[in-house]
Nucleic acid binder design. Structure first.
Lengths: 235, 235
DNA sequence: GAAAATATGTACTAGTTCGAACATTTTTGA
DNA sequence: TCAAAAATGTTCGAACTAGTACATATTTTC
């Protein structure tokens, strides 16, 4: 700025324009921008992300980002919606209608754990959205409906378990969902500090397998056990 | 800048200096700055926080912040260390030596849940530190040792439970710690998006009580159940 | 009671970043 | 085929922000 500006520059934006073979591909450009933006927002949070860094990653110019998304905030919302849509679509495919409801839950645990493990970018997005008190998510409105189905499906699964006397404890689907999400989410979201503190690699294949097993046992254990005597004694 | 700068200002920093009664109180100033910084860093993350906003909150000038902490990064590390120190001190007071190890675990669950619930600022700090891949935490070095004791104490508690045949399942202390921390942490860290999605108030007294109970049951259930037959069949 | 050390206030600089203005090229449709 | 529309590249400016320079005030120490 100090050397280049204010000297003799007066709309000479033309001279260095390289005429080169270029193919217009707006859909691809849009998708590229979304992908790069997701990566950057996840990595650095909303405030920490610069539009320029996204542009650089797409190997397209900043101009394109404003052309397609108008502002940083709108781009961020688009990224969020995109990410949520992906997990819901994937989740809908999980089989929760097994004869043995324990197997249904195992399917769900498998999916939930693996999805989070394999999509740290998704996790980080939600983390950073929570840091701004879900400001942008609330604006987005359509998210609530997307989540209703999973609660219903868990509910059916639990009912079958009670009916077959495989599950002894009464819990709401919401509680199961919260426990499962929480465990799978935390395993990814807090990796960095956990690794720093305990000096353990949480991303190895062995760690992955072990932790998934623990979560499965935790969820099933919650449904299998009756601590009523003890807990009411003490609480 | 456009109006005020470059006109006739040449080191006239004196004219408006208000001479007023002032009491030097460096310790208080330092503490004030730390507190305001913790709040801001937690609320907006590292990148989103401006030194000016911290200065404003303390009702002291930016100058003081640099005087005591030298740089934004060093201030951030000080905030982190301060926060970790607080939770460790509190945790050390939890009684894990009960005759009934279930009661010991209940004490631990109580503490862990309440601490997170009552200190959302602490939670957010760790969240944002995870977003930067624990860069600053790793630099801080002393954190690892702070965490060793809790694992040992859980270990003793579990051994007693096995010995008394109250716990049937073998788990490592690390796994219990991770599950417990994860559940307590998530309940606070992901409140915003969860509330937005499910339109539920997670901060009410009733929600608090209910969720704590669920977590207690989840932890105890994990230790009380034997799913070996089922799990090895399917995994 | 003055000099040194400590603490605080104000103005400014250098660098960064969002977004806009301007220039150009490719595609589409009549 | 050519004009309008869509897509893309480049430069600039206004605003913000970390950190510095300079001025001043209060406390401590000898």
């Amino acid at each position: 700025m100090a050397e280049s500006g204010a000297k003799s520059a007066k709309s000479q934006a033309t001279q260095k324009y390289q005429r080169q073979q270029r193919t217009n591909d707006p859909d691809q450009t849009r998708a590229d921008i979304l992908e790069a933006a997701e990566d950057q927002f996840a990595r650095r949070g909303y405030a920490g992300t610069t539009i320029d860094s996204i542009a650089q990653k797409t190997r397209r110019s900043k101009r394109m980002i404003y052309y397609y998304f108008n502002s940083k905030a709108k781009l961020y919302v688009a990224v969020l919606e995109n990410a949520y849509a992906r997990i819901r679509v994937a989740e809908a495919k999980v089989n929760l209608g097994e004869d043995d409801p324990r197997q249904s839950l195992k399917n769900l645990v498998d999916f939930c754990f693996d999805f989070h493990f394999d999509h740290p970018t998704y996790v980080k997005l939600i983390v950073s959205e929570n840091l701004n008190e879900a400001k942008y998510l609330t604006a987005s409105s359509l998210v609530g409906e997307l989540h209703r189905p999973i609660l219903q499906r868990i509910d059916q699964c639990l009912r079958l378990g009670y009916q077959k006397e495989l599950f002894h404890q009464v819990v709401t689907p919401m509680e199961i969902h919260m426990t499962l999400s929480g465990l799978c989410f935390f395993n990814v979201s807090n990796r960095a500090t956990f690794s720093a503190i305990f000096d353990a690699d949480m991303t190895s294949a062995a760690a992955r397998r072990a932790r998934k097993q623990q979560i499965l046992l935790t969820i099933l254990g919650r449904l299998n056990t009756t601590m009523d005597g003890f807990v009411s004694d003490f609480s």
